[in-house]
Nucleic acid binder design. Sequence first.
DNA 1: CTGTTAGCGCATTCAT
DNA 2: ATGAATGCGCTAACAG
Lengths: 337, 337
Amino acid sequence: MGASIYDVAKRAGVSISTVSRILNSSANVREDKVKAVREAMEYLKYEPNQFARGLVKQKTNLVGIYLPTAGGSVFDSQYNMELMKGIEGVLARRGYGMVILSSLTDSGKNPVYVEYIRQKRIDGLILGSVADGGEMESLRKLLRESSFPTVYIGKRIHTKGLNVYARFEEYHMEMIRLLRKNGHRNIALFISPGHKHYLSALLNRCRQELPEITLYPVFTRRGENRSLCTEDSIKTVLDKSCTALISPSTEEALAITGELSRLDLKVPEDVSVITVEHKKGAAALIPPGISAMYVPAGPMGTAAASLLVTALEKTGQEELSREFFPCYISRNSVKAI
Amino acid sequence: MGASIYDVAKRAGVSISTVSRILNSSANVREDKVKAVREAMEYLKYEPNQFARGLVKQKTNLVGIYLPTAGGSVFDSQYNMELMKGIEGVLARRGYGMVILSSLTDSGKNPVYVEYIRQKRIDGLILGSVADGGEMESLRKLLRESSFPTVYIGKRIHTKGLNVYARFEEYHMEMIRLLRKNGHRNIALFISPGHKHYLSALLNRCRQELPEITLYPVFTRRGENRSLCTEDSIKTVLDKSCTALISPSTEEALAITGELSRLDLKVPEDVSVITVEHKKGAAALIPPGISAMYVPAGPMGTAAASLLVTALEKTGQEELSREFFPCYISRNSVKAI
DNA sequence: CTGTTAGCGCATTCAT
DNA sequence: ATGAATGCGCTAACAG
């Protein structure tokens, strides 16, 4: 069993309050006592018990990360990994631990983070975009009602609270415009389950702004048989005689280009490809070098964590929302026709 | 502020012990009281404060995951991601939270997990293979001295304690043998920084068992400019006139094959490639379909977490160590010469 | 079956 | 500047 503050006090010949004061540097203590206490702590390998401390201060120094991924693991997408990397950096530096809240077990009932918040197991929460509309509603309600420090990564859902986002619709339109400029008219739009609810808005907007373009949505599935699923998808593309396609991630792009080459279709000669990439340069590795819209997930994670930590330490909540602007990186996968 | 057990007790007209009993189902309570208490809990949205509970039971229901990655983020390698996926599955199901311990901030001083253990912030620890020899030594000492529930993923380091592993040396020898059977003699061995300390043993063994083989180690670097680093590496391969190469991961394999094709070298016509893959089928997506040694990181994570949870719940520690056997999956990247 | 009570380890008044 | 005492919310004897 570890040493407690009593053991330290006894060994240093002082009272526990003095030890506590030194621990928190909450008051001045005579130099010699400080020294004695430090030695005692050293000797006993004393570390303050976080339960006891938390019970008094109501602070865990833990931040929850909840990145819902429809039916899959958080660790399945590079987007999430980049987010986490960004988050990890600032949390580690600022002395917070990160606890990964798995969406694996919540079905029907409340998502795990509700429990974690109520049980006071975390000081703050970083929330990835929820996929489904109903969930979205309840989340919005939760955020409005509780004042629990939360930063939401994704399309802004209410004006109160912390928020980090990139405009899905905007940068998709940009990709489409780009293909249009290159003469493409029939475009297959691969879209992941988590983004389904953006689709209709995007389709509408495209129909209005770019009436000459026809968009063919193709849904991708997560999980093991990614390649299998893609095979069917590619058939759809061919049937609609699309000359270009947009992929939602580099993982998907790799599967897609693989399938294309298996069907003896060349990129970009037979079909142009643009992908979204969340890690800078990731799509460059996919032959022949896939042009990409870079959505800076890492920096977004960093921003999210920074916002949260700032809010936690109540140093004034200057910044409430931060937008990120994806940028297009041209490589070798788009051909003018 | 949330409701406490007192509030619930008052509202239900019982004592706090009764509430506690119901909470922990630690004794029988009359039906009507149970009902009253449940209603009160519902009404007050009561959730037991984990600090107070932990203070008594010394249990956090949190498991620490420490996957050291020399100078990089945990989230940078697919190996780690697969491990985490495996771990996530069982921890979520068994009601444990996972806190990611970042190795980002520990330099010089104790690694973070030491602090987490001493502060009793976690109940158990899953430890990835440490890279460096010195660290290894201190770790071994730590594990021997403390009886903190820990499962170590990687080469067995002491007979006490929980352990999950695959034999790095073995499966690398297997890959080499396979290339040898296909007529290859000069082989480039790409090796990641985390595995450097395995190298000399492997070289020795190869020299003994397979004297006709010459192995050329090439060190890979983590981080952003992966492709840059690979370019140099490939030159090394050519200089030594290697006819085959072994890649340590699918990420690396993607970069390598990309670089090869940029140099107008074809796989497998000009150079044969085998990679280690940690996610089943991952290397199949890399043209032309890279043959791979599948090291089942996901299942290994699952096993590690299971071992740990079992140990935590003291249901007898039947299994102390579990070995995994990688298997070779032949695809299109190896040619006989 | 149920209520009373003594800690768990610490931060924080309140005296001194 | 420092010690004694109180309470954070809960569990686990203990007593009825």
